Computed example of a mutant assay.
Amino acid sequence: MLAMLNGMLREKLLLPMFGDVAALVSSGVLLSVGILLVAWLAVPWFGALPAREWRLIGLFWLGLTLAFEFGFGRLVQHKAWADLFSAYTFQGGNLWPLVLAVTLLAPWVAARLRGRVQASGAAGMERRT
């Protein structure tokens, strides 16, 4: 949802105002900040977890993002694989690879900033009781 809103903002406002390259860069930065904000807001919902689990949450978020991107691109938009993979370069101001890295790391980073990463020994003790 966040990425779709970002895409609409890019197409309707940023592209006409700034042109292709600046709009793509701005859009990538805005989407990355939005993902970090969502992670920041979600951390209390998850509670305190070991670093490994925060990283798994990020991996899950990344997996969902890629599944949507490739599934929608192939099944709905009928794009060729080459067209889909072209989005995974930094050409023309495209920051999509950076956005994916932020998606992967955002839960762990937000949890660290909010002090919600448990020491690895604490998680093992908690689960045994």
Rank of each mutant, 00 (worst) to 15 (best):
L2E: 10
N6V: 01
G7P: 07
G7M: 06
M8E: 12
M8Y: 12
L9I: 12
L14P: 07
L15A: 00
L15R: 06
L15G: 00
P16F: 01
M17F: 11
F18E: 00
F18I: 02
F18R: 02
G19A: 02
V21A: 11
V21G: 00
A23T: 01
V25C: 03
V29C: 01
S32H: 01
V33Q: 03
G34T: 02
L36M: 15
L37R: 06
L37P: 09
V38Y: 10
L41R: 15
P44L: 08
G47Q: 10
G47F: 14
L49H: 04
A51N: 02
R52T: 08
W54R: 06
W54A: 07
L56C: 08
G58N: 08
W61T: 09
G63T: 07
L64V: 08
L64I: 06
L66R: 03
L66V: 14
A67V: 13
A67C: 12
A67D: 04
A67E: 06
F70D: 00
F70C: 00
F70A: 00
G71C: 05
G73Y: 00
G73E: 03
L75E: 09
Q77E: 11
Q77D: 10
A80I: 02
W81L: 15
W81M: 14
A82F: 13
A82H: 14
S86L: 03
A87P: 01
Y88L: 15
T89S: 15
T89C: 08
G92S: 11
G92L: 08
G92M: 02
G93Q: 08
N94L: 07
W96S: 01
P97G: 07
V99N: 05
V99T: 14
L100W: 04
V102Q: 02
T103H: 06
P107E: 10
P107Q: 09
W108Q: 09
V109G: 01
V109C: 03
A110E: 11
G115N: 05
V117A: 06
Q118N: 10
S120F: 10
S120D: 11
G121T: 14
A122D: 15
A122Q: 15
A122G: 07
G124K: 14
G124L: 15
R128L: 15
